[in-house]
Design a protein around this nucleic acid. Structure first.
Lengths: 343, 343
DNA sequence: CTGTTAGCGCTTTCAG
DNA sequence: CTGAAAGCGCTAACAG
């Protein structure tokens, strides 16, 4: 807005046509209560004058913006972008736009962003809390104010009143590790992410329970929890990890595709044959794994679908009557194992 | 908005304190014209009552939303995401938020998205037109309405009044190809993108002029202009390309990192040694090239910086006086060649 | 079918 | 320093 040239508004059309603003508004709204001929006149004049409705005025008046706020921890993670695509696709169909913000992995920024959402720009919020987010009071707070919310990825179950979209991380990683075990692997390394994230905790649990079930020893040395929040450092962390191993793993279960690729890269550099000597399996399936040589076997996570589902849940909440209290919903999406060349 | 519970507004604070709405508004605005003690009372009460300003009302009243609309052709292209990060970073510092939309490579969607921007949601627009966009009337149209605009990537110089942020694609690709030539390569393949995009046209020109300058033959067979708009098909297109060659190239200049990686992948599969038998160079430098084995040499494009610069130009326009006509600015950013293992 | 009127919540003259 | 009042552009009773 604030466009330099003056914009034509309803009033201008009304005056030109010698009718009331209300009628113009209704006509443009395709309200059946206005005469066909009037409507046509209005449409014609609106077009002629280059009328463009003012969304802000509409929102103030109607009490809704038709914008969904999306808050993700970072942009440079294909998973989040894919989820956003899913949200966008569903939202668009239902006449909503999305406003994406990044909390840049910071609890403070998360709060800050939510505040700007709370200022009335968005009708509801979809978010993945950062790993730093221990206290979820700010989230419950928003929910209590009646702002519809859906969580995904780093779910915090304590947030009552917000819907959740998730996968069964533990089960998925269990099946990945089981797959390796059934291939005869016995020295399986684990590369996880930030320990504070529920998804990584769960993937670790799955890893452990698979090994336990099949009575395969857990070598502490073969377990790495990456702490990096940056591509650059992840790289280094994984390189170092492999450099200092005294046991040579015959398989690697990586909690993200990126970790899987970095692991393969490091292994290849040290002359290992994949998958003959070391099998590698990743998690995510966001396209990168298919480009690498060898291509990466991985747990396929329905990222796009997660987004769609999150949007669906949110929009359902938005359409719920304001009277009844929202009944929390938790959606579990299925994962599958996609076998490629690295195993 | 439309939050179920009623929100506290200026009026509520005013009444509680027995002062006028105007004073509350001014106090909260840190307007020096209000007495220190009053201001403190207001702040205290606002906090107590959990006041949260209504951005929509503010926007309607002030005529600006402090939102920048960003329109990119697709989300699943790291380059665009990186540009968005740059925009976001600069915008944030200057108290702007960004609203990202994707035109999904469609001229129709581009127009549609711009219309929703034009409805007053955004103060200005940063965009990369789609390859389908031949007619730029819709863009000039917006500019003429006084909406500040900055173009990047697939620049259309015809859009007068909009600022441009670009790199010298021709020069950059010239230098890449020259680099290959100086390494003694003589049968250089070219993998470009959609021909309708200016960036790809320019990169092709650079390729040709380097070969010409050094009197290296251009083999038509070694030139591929990818038409795919989808990862999946790009893959296939490049595979096919190499499969049907009768000449074996000793180098490949790829117009994106992704093409470069796919080329390497295909070459490796057919047993070629990189860089000994075939050197490969990409364009972009968005992180993927560093993970691959071998790592990809490429032209580094300052994507993040492009975003920052675009935001800077736009925000400058927003701050310009409404009286004077905007003086078009074109910014050229520098590229450099980053040598890695693939050459 | 159409017009009148009262908001939506905030900013901003203009008076005082 | 503070208040009253107009207005941003549109929607939605309510009345006719």
């Amino acid at each position: 807005m604030g466009f330099k040239k003056r914009r034509v508004k309803l009033e201008d059309i009304a005056r030109k046509l010698n009718i009331s603003i209300a009628t113009v508004s209704r006509a443009l709204d395709e309200n059946p209560r206005v005469k066909q001929s009037t409507r046509e006149k209005v449409f014609h004049m609106a077009k002629l004058m280059g009328y463009m409705p003012n969304q802000i005025a509409k929102s103030l008046s109607s009490g809704k913006t038709n914008i969904i706020g999306v808050l993700i921890p970072r942009y440079d993670e294909p998973f989040f972008i894919e989820v956003c695509r899913g949200i966008d696709q569903y939202a668009r169909k239902h006449n909503y736009k999305i406003l994406i913000s990044s909390s840049r992995n910071s609890y403070e920024f998360e709060k800050e962003n939510l505040i700007s959402f709370e200022k009335g720009l968005v009708d509801g919020i979809i978010l993945s809390p950062t790993h730093e987010t221990e206290n979820v009071a700010h989230l419950n707070n928003l929910v209590n104010k009646g702002i519809p919310m859906v969580l995904f990825d780093n779910i915090r179950e304590e947030v009552s009143g917000a819907d959740h979209v998730m996968i069964d991380d533990e089960k998925a990683s269990f099946s990945a590790v089981e797959f390796l075990i059934k291939k005869g692997k016995k020295k399986i390394a684990f590369i996880g992410g930030i320990k504070q994230k529920k998804v990584f905790q769960d993937r670790y649990k799955g890893f452990i329970s698979a090994l336990t079930k099949y009575k395969i020893p857990v070598y502490d040395e073969l377990v790495l929890h990456c702490n990096s929040l940056d591509r650059e450092f992840e790289d280094k962390e994984i390189l170092d990890f492999f450099k200092h191993l005294s046991i040579t793993p015959d398989a690697v279960f990586a909690c993200t595709d990126n970790y899987g690729l970095l692991a393969m890269k490091t292994l290849l550099k040290t002359g290992k044959k994949i998958p003959e000597e070391v099998a590698v399996i990743g998690f995510g399936d966001l396209g990168l794994g298919e480009v690498f040589v060898p291509t990466l076997t991985c747990i396929s996570q329905p990222s796009f679908e997660m987004g769609q589902k999150a949007a669906e849940l949110l929009i359902n909440q938005l359409n719920e009557s304001d009277e009844v209290d929202h009944q929390k919903r938790i959606i579990h999406l299925k994962t599958k194992l996609t076998e490629r060349e690295s195993t």
